[in-house]
């Protein structure tokens, strides 16, 4: 692996006990498993979290690429979308959690780190107490995982 090879951190955000909110943790688990099985060529770490917080900044600062997998309630979303996150100092009333834009801004501000950050939003449908994903959410998540390996990784080189 060359020194310029991307160091990738993936975050799966959500509560795996609230139905399709567990899409993010599901993606992380599956991606790490697939990467291990296929001798993934780059440094890849993954973590399931409920949401982004200040406490994660120090970890994320060590990576050149950060990819966020999160469930979406957007009814206009067909299955998933991928967007490039831009830093922003916009502030909410709480500092218990950070939006992706604020997270990236804080990385720059505090750790002088500027990883490339993508947000993959995956459509979910069912949000009640459950440890399993709905079938459609799982299909959407698998499509997003395939996109991660086939397209997003290539764009990181």
């Amino acid at each position: 692996m060359s020194s310029s090879a991307p160091k990738i951190l993936i975050y799966g955000m959500g509560n795996p006990h609230r139905g399709d909110d567990g899409i993010g943790p599901y993606c992380v688990e599956k991606i790490l498993s697939l990467a291990k099985a296929t001798n993934f060529p780059y440094a890849l770490e993954g973590k399931a979290i409920f949401h982004l917080s200040i406490d994660e900044l120090e970890t994320a600062a060590k990576y050149s690429q950060v990819v966020l997998f999160d469930a979406s309630m957007d009814i206009n979303l067909i299955n998933f979308s991928c967007s490039l996150v831009q830093p922003s100092a916009c502030q909410q009333f709480t500092t218990h959690l950070l939006m992706p834009e604020e997270f990236l801004y804080s990385l720059l501000q505090l750790f002088n780190a500027r990883p490339t950050m993508h947000l993959i939003s995956i459509r979910g449908y069912y949000w009640e107490m459950s440890n399993t994903l709905s079938q459609q959410a799982k299909t959407n998540a698998d499509s997003a995982i395939a996109f991660f390996f086939s397209s997003l990784i290539k764009s990181m080189n």
């Binding site: 100092a89 505090l110 750790f111």
Partner: peptide
């Protein structure tokens, strides 16, 4: 704390 980070980076860095 985010504004603290803008005003006093070192303090916020240590806090984290």
């Amino acid at each position: 704390v985010l504004y603290l980070a803008q005003e006093n980076r070192d303090l916020a860095y240590r806090a984290i």
